[in-house]
């Protein structure tokens, strides 16, 4: 872990009409680090994530990404084409619903191949090999690589989505409730897979979830959000074992009860 942040948000505020989704957010992610963002539904977690990924433009504040060459890119001041280039080469975004992040009418292989093609790969053989490799990495049987993603179960689709986002070997991965609609055993498997891949590939991750067990397992640092603001952030085990803010205590207490 180097000390310069990979991605840094300063005083970010996001509004949708009269609603303020995130308020005055400061947050940083470093290389090889997993940052968890937890909080109740509607706390602004996903909006913040989309803002960090450059998808949503904040009303005020800056998000700065530092590339492998040490150059800083102020995301929301970039031209659309430059932002798209970064988004396809340097980071990945795993959506809560697989159909938001996949093309269900295409095969699993094509879904994994697409980001590579968009990065300029023009050799079919290379693409085919990479797609097979990454499907294996997420523990999918390559025998099914030419089947349409639509025919896959939710957990399998989510793994295809993960493979699709790792194939370009990004430096930064955004995960928006990656285990959302999955049953518990599949969730555990997917989380463990994410943990192992992230550790092996040294990719930085911003993980939005309301699953505290997931962040305890995955995240180095944790941000707790409530009503658009950060109420607490720190070491994951510290925030979970010794929550300071009333809302964090409520969150942790609620988790333990169920």
């Amino acid at each position: 872990m180097s000390d310069a942040p990979l991605l840094e948000a300063e005083a970010v505020t996001c509004r949708f009409g009269r609603v303020t989704a995130c308020r005055d957010i400061d947050v940083a992610v470093h290389a090889g680090e997993i940052l968890g963002i937890v909080g109740e539904s509607g706390a602004g977690k996903s909006t913040l994530l989309r803002c960090l990924a450059g998808v949503v433009r904040p009303a005020s504040g800056t998000v700065t990404y530092t590339d492998a060459g040490g150059r800083e890119h102020p995301l929301h001041a970039l031209e659309d084409s430059a932002l798209r280039r970064l988004a396809r080469t340097d980071w990945g975004f795993v959506h809560q619903h697989p159909h938001d992040g996949l093309r269900p009418h295409l095969s699993a292989g094509a879904n994994v191949a697409e980001p590579l093609l968009r990065c300029g790969e023009t050799r079919y053989g290379r693409i085919r090999t990479a797609a097979r490799h990454w499907l294996e990495q997420v523990e999918l049987d390559p025998v099914r690589m030419d089947d349409r993603v639509r025919t896959f179960s939710g957990g399998m689709q989510q793994r295809v989505q993960l493979a699709r986002n790792l194939v370009t070997e990004p430096r930064l991965l955004f995960l928006d409730e990656p285990t959302g609609g999955l049953d518990v055993s599949v969730q555990a498997r997917l989380l463990d897979l994410i943990r192992q891949l992230v550790a092996r590939l040294q990719v930085a991750v911003v993980l939005v979830t309301h699953d505290l067990a997931a962040v305890r397992l995955l995240a180095h640092r944790l941000v707790v959000m409530q009503q658009g603001g950060i109420v607490e952030q720190g070491l994951t085990d510290q925030v979970l074992d010794d929550p300071q803010h009333a809302y964090s205590q409520l969150l942790v207490a609620s988790e333990l009860r169920c």
């Binding site: 295409l106 095969s107 292989g109 094509a110 191949a113 697409e114 093609l117 968009r118 990065c119 023009t122």
Partner: peptide, 15 residues
């Protein structure tokens, strides 16, 4: 950003 256009070709070759 034309990678997606090649995806259709990829599918045909794969199938």
């Amino acid at each position: 950003d034309y990678g997606l256009a090649r995806v259709a070709l990829y599918e045909q070759i794969a199938h």
